[in-house]
Write a protein that binds this DNA or RNA. Sequence first.
DNA 1: CGAATAGTGTCTGTGAGACAGTATTCT
DNA 2: AGAATACTGTCTCACAGACACTATTCG
Lengths: 221, 221
Amino acid sequence: MNDELMRPILTVDVVPMCLRHGQVHAVLQRRNKPPEQDRLALIGGYVHPEEDENAAAAARRVLAQKGGMRVRVLEQLMTFSGLARDARGWSASVAYYALLAERDVPAAAPGLLTIVPVREVTGLPFDHDAIVAAAVERLRRRASYSSLPGFFLEETFTLSALREAYRITLGHTINDSAFRRKIDELHVVEPVPGAMSKSSARPAQLYRLARPEVTEFNRTL
Amino acid sequence: MNDELMRPILTVDVVPMCLRHGQVHAVLQRRNKPPEQDRLALIGGYVHPEEDENAAAAARRVLAQKGGMRVRVLEQLMTFSGLARDARGWSASVAYYALLAERDVPAAAPGLLTIVPVREVTGLPFDHDAIVAAAVERLRRRASYSSLPGFFLEETFTLSALREAYRITLGHTINDSAFRRKIDELHVVEPVPGAMSKSSARPAQLYRLARPEVTEFNRTL
DNA sequence: CGAATAGTGTCTGTGAGACAGTATTCT
DNA sequence: AGAATACTGTCTCACAGACACTATTCG
């Protein structure tokens, strides 16, 4: 049996997400090649074994090539596979989700990138609707016990901004004092000495994430 | 650019796990083909696009072919990929973990299958050590807020047996009355009318899982 | 001053762990 | 009777939510 001769297609697909107008948005791309040319879809492409060290590297490459995006988090979601999902034949796509600050979304370039509220994402080609749904579900679940929403923000932020990021991501309001208490006890953030935000009615202390990577808590936030 | 011509190898690898002697064990298989012939490794194989509907189907096929195992749960873990992990070249392996009752482990056949405590698993070929480690971590995390450990048991079981499954999986003792309280409130199990276990000092009510699929709780167990 | 945002202190309810205590069967 | 396992009741503490309250700046 020459198993090795029948190799399916291997691709990566990324769901880049950001916060905007109080909602989680996904960054979609209009496809410039068949199949499904001109349709809005996830940012993805073939894995290039010669240049990609692994699938995550391929995901970063397509993000850079097709979107020019600097993402703050890139995590593997799961792999979608089968005959039905792509007209080109049996394929497997390693799906990733990425978080970026709104200001890091490339200014709506030559109509290539489109930012859509995830709640309104529908009708994407292939199984991209399912991939987006899985990404949103993972985001929400993981947000409830990790520092993930902090990666929607820029380097420094106020506690109010962080709380708002959690509120939007989780989809429900958060008690202010309880939030501050927990953020403090779990050492999620640290104050930036001397840095104050002056953008609101009253100046607020600026913070940054205490750890550069996503950290999970032993209790819910 | 003929991206399509350079297709990496696509395989599946499964980490089948069961409880035995108060510890989580993995079922490993001695490889009967190169590469890494005669070494103990995960149960895996090439994806066969002609016969496998998707990667999960391929995982079930290799489980049936190489182990003859009827697993109670099969869930995708994550995909491991890259040039370094397999001498045959750039490969991607969609990894799964499976749960089965101890009595469903095929009786240690012609030395093909070996049951090893996961804590002692080391020195496996490829990146299988890392896959097992990831499976154990996922199992433990998911067990703390889901019915997952119930799938280590047979169809019916006593509450004591279920509590023991959680204890072994989570790695720490569990308060008995709190456990019963939560199991009850979350409707994890339902009593089997009239069925009693007589294997211990005092007969105990037999239960079965209230839902045939793994269910996640909104609070920790 | 009043509005708006930042940040603090305190009360209360719920749920988890600890543990004592009861029930039933076996040897 | 005594051991072993099954199961229940109650106490206490920690934590989450609710909310009132103070602080600071801007218009």
